[in-house]
Design a protein around this nucleic acid. Structure first.
Length: 429
RNA sequence: GACCCCAUCGUCUAGCCCGGUUAGGACUCAGGCCUUUCGAGCCUGUAGCGCCGGUUCAAAUCCGGCUGGGGUCGCCA
């Protein structure tokens, strides 16, 4: 039976690369109806933090990844010492300077990687390596090998940065008398400027994307697209579908560059796809978390706002920026509106206010009808009245459809804000 | 520097294994349409097989070299 694992060390938050590696490993296990285990590599006492561990588990769950078992290396220290001792007794390792060293003996080591094919190492940078540190804890390569062997891992699916560790581990498997598992090395994700992803160039951790208002389905989908293709020119694919079609052989060998633009686009697609009620719930949780929502906002009002923006935002966080006017009155007119506002229309807007206040049922249909008639009456083109009205209501030149916006804001707010624009014009003279 | 991996539009990729395609799709970008705006939607377009050889009637596809990019060289993981 197939058994794969993800082995994060809790020395930092779960980042995109780790999440993708985990995803592929998980996908392979699920597709094969096998087991997927989580192994926390927390042998580095100084750098391992509980908060990181919690965040990693939380992010994985958020992405929709589950696990059948979880192990902590810090609880298995005696096991590693036991096997190291065994190697010493067999003359394959020795004590020195309080540590246990393993001696590499080989001609060449060949790996038959499931993604890259045959990879042959004829040389290693070292002749020997510490396997148990002088403080009694194991080093990475040893703990990893012992655990993968003991836990019965059949497929080690991990990042390409581990490719050069593989020959060492294979040599350790041999020394331990264990048949090595299959290996599959996933290419790295490069930052937009090439090289490793770093915080310098923006968000790297899953939690940051979550905080920015990305949907887990979109994150998973984007990660899937980086290095793998479902084929048939398809791009939108769910985790469930991916389980059906995922193939390790289909994974690309070359590192791929992360694209924020495409990621945002994909997220916007998922937002469009979400049913309005579901999206509203997500938005509510999101904005409450950010402490952005005023107390008085009702779920019903929020649903209307979400409907207004659903088709034009790429992440939930956009709502705090583009949708500010829906929740607060204290916005100012953005600088680029001056070319429109320089044309003073206070008289006309006053007429508009008068007409709008006559509307009993303030729906977008009624508003539009009245609005156009007013413009006609004032001998203005509709857009000459539309633009300043939008600025009065939202502070911006760009936004959702004006009449829908007016309906959402309600008659009172609309009139209040139109009056505010008139005052603004007066003050400017 | 040593060892290892990789190479299709600016980016993500399909095609490569089993040579013969107008080299397909997506993001971005540009232009147009819609029209009350737009960062939304619709349509169109620009743009690619890194280079040099070899094999072959024929090479993005097979082989070699070069160049370029990436990874690893801790008593970190």
């Amino acid at each position: 039976m197939v058994k794969t694992r993800f082995a994060p060390s809790p020395t930092g938050f779960l980042h995109l690369g780790g999440a993708r590696t985990c995803l592929f490993s998980w996908l392979y296990a699920r597709k094969s109806k096998g087991k997927f285990i989580l192994r926390i590599e927390d042998t580095d006492r100084l750098r391992s933090k509980k908060e990181y561990l919690e965040e990693i588990l939380e992010s994985l769950s958020w992405l929709g990844i589950d696990w059948d078992e979880i192990f902590y290396q810090s609880q298995r220290l005696s096991i590693y010492r036991e096997y190291a001792q065994k190697l010493v007794e067999e003359g394959k390792a020795y004590y020195r300077e309080g540590a246990v060293f393993f001696k590499y003996q080989f001609d060449e080591v060949e790996i038959d990687d499931l993604i890259r094919g045959k990879v042959t190492f004829r040389e290693l940078p070292k002749q020997e390596e510490v396997i148990i540190k002088s403080d009694g804890t194991p080093t990475y390569n040893f703990a990893c090998t012992v655990d993968d062997a003991l836990m019965g891992i059949t497929h080690v699916i991990r990042g390409e940065d581990h490719l050069s560790n593989t020959p060492k581990q294979i040599l350790m498997y041999k020394a331990l008398g264990v048949f090595p598992p299959r290996f599959a090395h996933i290419p790295m994700i490069l930052s937009q400027s090439g090289g490793k992803m770093s915080k310098r160039e923006g968000a790297t951790s899953i939690r940051e994307y979550r905080a920015g208002g990305y949907l887990p389905q979109a994150v998973v989908n984007y990660l899937l697209l980086l290095g793998w293709s479902p084929g048939g020119n398809r791009e939108i694919i769910s985790l469930e579908e991916a389980i059906q079609t995922f193939e390790l052989k289909g994974v690309n060998k070359n590192p791929s560059t992360f694209s924020q633009d495409k990621f945002d686009w994909l997220n916007s697609q998922y937002i469009k796809l979400k049913p309005i009620d579901e999206l509203t719930t997500l938005v509510k949780e999101f904005l409450e978390e950010k402490k952005f929502l005023p107390q008085k906002v009702t779920l019903d009002y929020l649903r209307k706002v979400v409907a207004l923006f659903k088709e034009r935002i790429s992440k939930l966080g956009d709502l705090m920026d583009w949708g500010y006017f829906c929740f607060y009155d204290d916005f100012s007119y953005s600088p680029d509106t001056q070319d429109i506002l320089k044309r003073k229309l206070s008289k006309e807007v006053e007429v508009l206010i008068e007409r709008l206040s006559q509307i009993e049922d303030f729906t977008k249909e009624n508003i539009e009808k009245e609005f156009r008639q007013t413009a006609h009456f004032l001998r203005l083109k509709a857009k000459d009245l539309v633009h300043p009205t939008r600025i009065a209501l939202t502070g911006r030149k760009i936004g959702p459809g004006l009449f829908e916006t007016m309906e959402v804001l309600g008659k009172e707010k609309v009139i209040e804000r139109l009056k505010r624009l008139c005052h603004w014009w007066e003050e400017r003279n």
